[in-house]
Design a binder for these strands. Sequence first.
DNA 1: AGTTTAACCGACCGACAGGTCGGTTGCAAA
DNA 2: TTTGCAACCGACCTGTCGGTCGGTTAAACT
Lengths: 194, 194
Amino acid sequence: MRDPEQTRQKILEVSADEIHRKGFNATSLSCILARCEISKGALYHHFANKMELGYAVFEEVYAPAFIALWQPPVEAEDPIQGLSDFFSSMSKEMSCDELVCGCPLNNLCQEMSGVDEGFRIRILAMQQQLNLLIATNLSRVSSQLQTDLDFSQVAYFIVSTFHGSSSLSKSSLNKELFDKVIKELCRYMGQLKR
Amino acid sequence: MRDPEQTRQKILEVSADEIHRKGFNATSLSCILARCEISKGALYHHFANKMELGYAVFEEVYAPAFIALWQPPVEAEDPIQGLSDFFSSMSKEMSCDELVCGCPLNNLCQEMSGVDEGFRIRILAMQQQLNLLIATNLSRVSSQLQTDLDFSQVAYFIVSTFHGSSSLSKSSLNKELFDKVIKELCRYMGQLKR
DNA sequence: AGTTTAACCGACCGACAGGTCGGTTGCAAA
DNA sequence: TTTGCAACCGACCTGTCGGTCGGTTAAACT
């Protein structure tokens, strides 16, 4: 019955969901405890404090999921097509509820980057890793692309637009505005080809 | 000595700055009171509660400032050039501290749209107003632009990218990433012309 | 001068946050 | 079977938050 590792994973999983929905500060420990059906003592046995729990969620849940999400489309034979399909399927298949929660990385960046150094450096590292991933794979097919493109610049641009569009969908409470931006993003990416 | 209107304005001004820097929830009334050098009673004489204060800040400070900021570049003879100059001067002239605070509208959207309906509808209205402003002015010079452009779609795309880039700059703590995205955004806008 | 009232004061309140700590429980090794 | 300790419990602590309210002050009007 007693399984410390499972307890820890459960805490991480529930915390990740709560933080995704409400943000880090608005997430209360008591809410996590209730959903996990454990005591405060159990949580503080596994994590030193709320911050450390947040860092653990980032490193053990968000970061791996983030890479697992972006890597396949970017490493497709045609990364432009891969990303276009990726974004399009997102606006088609994703439920409105999920969409409105936004990207966990972007949410945390907005909320915590300016407040806590520990979150900032982790988020920055993640963004640079994603940027490198995209830029590398664009340069891989550079022969099919316009000349004089700054791949890193293009990669940051694509991710920024994606994050900005997920922000938009929060206020509209439906996918309409999100879809519009994604359409234009796909059109932009198509123009990268020569 | 006693000037209720001045007191009210001072509260709005200080609150706007605090909310911009820390976000709505993280802004404490006691901090506002200290900076204004007034008592809690004075604040609650002018505003019913924290939410109403937030709405007043949005409507009387953020919204006018937002329109005053975007209108001139968009209504320039050449809106594409106007926006390019607008964005470029932003990344040049803005101090790093200001940049890291992000756009008040985008910040509030991220933080409050999913939590409070009153904020959500105000933010949505503001976004639609801005979108209309940009789309209208793009269609004004449509003869100089590519055919088959969806102006509303393009407008949402531009604003999304801008907001996304301001999010990025929070984690990097300098203008580097912001500049990159803005450069690519200007390149994209240039391509809108035929 | 007296009266009224908007403007303002600040002590106080309950709710809830994150965090602590002495005690209990279950399991595994000796 | 006993014992040691990781795992877990939950009452309690301190601090801060938004919000209340009875009282005071200044100024405008009669």
